[in-house]
Design a protein around this nucleic acid. Sequence first.
RNA 1: GGAGGGUUGGCCGAGCGGUAAGGCAGCGGCUUGCUAAGCCGUCGUCAGGGACACCUGCGUGAGUUCGAAUCUCACACCCUCCGCCA
Length: 419
Amino acid sequence: MIDLRALREDPERLRASQRARGEDEAVVDRLIDLDERRRSALSRFESLRAEQKSFGKSVSKAKGPEREALLARAKELAQQVKQAEAEADRLEGELAELLKTVPNIIEDGAPAGGEQDYVVLEHVGEPPSFDFTPRDHLELGELLGAIDTERGAKVSGARFYYLTGVGTRLQLALLNLAMDQAIEAGFVPMYPPLLVKPEAMDGTGFLGAHAAEVYRLPDDDLYLVGTSEVPLAAYHMDEIIDDLPRRYVAWSSCFRREAGSYGKDTRGIIRVHQFDKVEMFSYCTLEDSHEEHLRLLEWEKQMLAKVELPYRVIDVAAGDLGASAARKYDCEAWIPSQNTYREVTSTSNCTEFQARRLSVRHRDDSGKTRPVATLNGTLATTRWIVAILENHQLADGSVRVPKALQPYLGGQEVLEPVR
RNA sequence: GGAGGGUUGGCCGAGCGGUAAGGCAGCGGCUUGCUAAGCCGUCGUCAGGGACACCUGCGUGAGUUCGAAUCUCACACCCUCCGCCA
């Protein structure tokens, strides 16, 4: 949710942001108009209400015929108050609804445009060159006895899979490595709830354009989280935090319906309904948020270095940010079988957008409460297995284990085919 | 699934139909001194609106009433107990 007061002072800022996102600029004028009408309706109601209250006091003191006269006037007032309140409530509701559709204002410097308009910030590492035809991750996974998508489909349907044997161990190794890195950096480790109430899901900004992506349990009015960003952002809902920054790292499963992605990435475990992820989450001041964002990106790069993957960093374009983010950097690892880079991490600065919706605040130097800034970033996911298997494969279908992962795999240096 | 209790300012908490006690914290001042304590004080404190004087807001929504934190109904959430289940 954006700040209405700030909007009143500088509507041009939101206009520019909407333009860069390729979204409707006219909402700015509609917001301002609604806001003005709401405030005048509220004033009208409040002055009537004040009059009614003081009238009530004189009624309580009056006696006899004087009281009767006052009562008659008070009844009239009561009618007017009721009407004025209804009008103010109506406009308030209308404004709130419109406000919910407005995405965060982008950070200065975020590239304008849509999905294709990202800017590549850097390349790290070299894509491997093979003197044999590289296998894709599913073929490797099957050779190693690491991935079973056939039985995943049998039991749960398309886009489900089993990690088996060394695949399971590899995931545990990867996610533990990520947890350990974050804990060492001072993050508080968390295991969050994965079913959340509507206000948590909505407050995080996932029930807008992305509502179709979210699994919902109608009998219980709960949502399955698509990322632990949701329970981590809602963790301090309705609180005032005074010791900023706060950094949390959570390990969780993530559930996504992948509606509208029919036919995309149907092979293997690139795009699945359920996967595991280690996610960093920071609460800090708005002023610190830009620096914190770069720190999160740095931690992501550290992890990618540990698993020895070649990747590039992109500055995601405004139109592809999602509602909550003001700026987003993705790290994309090289995927040999696809001859392209695919997203393996994503870090967003949501500035005050989520905190305002969730009512997470801190006290500034003057003692006033202000929304905090929230940021998130990926440290590892199931999808990383794809990149690790493919980039570190050898001619015979075995896979070299990156040094940093070896201690987590009982010292194994190479994963060998089981058939 | 059933029964009961609860929801009041940053925190605790009174209020039971007529302007929302009190305490803690906070802030300002003073005193004594020191891993801080005591005293005094007052207006402010959280949110929204505003002519910056004030006003509105007691979980949410309806109702009763001239007037609702207070009475009625519905809903949400939290807690306890019982039942069922892992």
